[in-house]
């Protein structure tokens, strides 16, 4: 394929997909180890009311208000889950289930009640994202990567998700020791004087931020899949956290790239002319990777634990 076709049409979505996958997979490692993997699922449901409210207040589908609204409703959801869990003495899973379904229902209702027919805002968009439509019309070929005029026309999602990815990398490397220790041995971390509650909260907030940023570009289904599948597959490959994170990044990149290519060109190879959903394909590929890891991964079984 020539650069003239690849750079404007496929490069930006591919990059966005890869960056989003990596940004989600990094905090995902800790969430999986802390048995909080479903936080990503919950967040991706609760951002819907936030986004709709942001639209109703501002009347536009700008990225800024949407992100604010999504962040706001994530914070509301985390607070609500904690409140229901503590006040009602309900187990965390059920508290989460009550909260995210109710908030998602409220979001759908708001969406139906408001007049959003003129703008591109619907539930399907929130679920699948619009990865394929993030094209770079100003590019004419590889040389455009060095052309500042053309670079200005990049889809705004690309720098946004790039920044998010950088932020997540910075967060993980700066808080590496506290995160690692409090994830594996919360009691020891507390005796060593670390604010474990605060660290846990920071992790959830970073995960929410990542989810919201990625959500905007690629839809919630990739977000949920990337929070869980690459880290889970990586967990079956190694016993060391550093190696696990390395594997998870590799798996995330592989899922995003392979999934995008398969979605875009797979049907062509099969003799059909329409591409399938890239978001769905990326999730599927990550699931295939997890399945392979579960079948053949070197560290797939529990060691030392009874085989119940």
């Amino acid at each position: 394929m020539s650069g003239a076709e690849f750079v404007p049409l496929s490069l930006p979505p591919l990059l966005i997909g890869i960056l989003a996958a990596v940004a989600c997979a990094l905090p995902g490692n800790f969430l999986v180890l802390r048995k909080q993997a479903l936080i990503g699922d919950a967040i991706s449901h609760v951002v819907l009311p936030g986004i709709v409210v942001a639209f109703l207040v501002t009347g536009t589908v700008g990225a800024g208000p949407m992100m604010l609204g999504a962040m706001g409703s994530s914070v509301v959801a985390v607070g609500l889950i904690e409140a229901i869990r503590r006040l009602g003495r309900i187990e965390p899973g059920a508290a989460m289930g009550v909260t995210f379904t109710a908030m998602f229902a409220a979001g759908v209702l708001l969406l139906e009640q408001s007049d959003t027919s003129s703008v591109h805002l619907d539930v399907e968009h929130a679920l699948y994202g619009n990865l394929e439509s993030l094209i770079w019309l100003d590019a004419v070929g590889w040389q455009s990567l060095l052309d500042p005029v053309a670079l200005a026309g990049l889809p705004p999602e690309l720098p946004r998700i790039g920044l998010t990815c950088l932020f997540v990398i910075a967060f993980t490397s700066i808080l590496w020791r506290p995160l690692k220790i409090s994830t594996f041995d919360e009691g020891f971390a507390a005796t060593a004087g670390m604010p474990t509650t605060l660290i846990g909260l920071a992790l959830v907030i970073v995960a929410a931020l990542t989810a919201v940023a990625a959500f905007d570009a690629v839809g919630s289904i990739i977000v949920i899949a990337m929070f869980i599948c690459p880290p889970a597959a990586a967990r079956l490959m190694t016993n060391r956290l550093e190696t696990q994170i390395g594997w998870s990044v590799v798996f995330a990149v592989l899922s995003a790239a392979l999934g995008y290519v398969l979605a875009g060109y797979g049907p062509l190879w099969l003799g059909r002319d329409n591409a399938v959903s890239a978001a769905g394909m990326i999730a599927t590929v990550s699931g295939a990777i997890l399945a392979l890891a579960a079948l053949f991964g070197p560290c797939r079984t529990r060691t030392g634990a009874p085989a119940s």
Binding site: L38, I221, F227, A232, A263, S277, A279, G280, A283
Partner: peptide, 14 residues
């Protein structure tokens, strides 16, 4: 649970 729900849902969307 998370892995199954996201992967199956993604495949369903495909």
């Amino acid at each position: 649970i998370g892995a199954v729900l996201s992967v199956f849902f993604g495949f369903g969307i495909v």
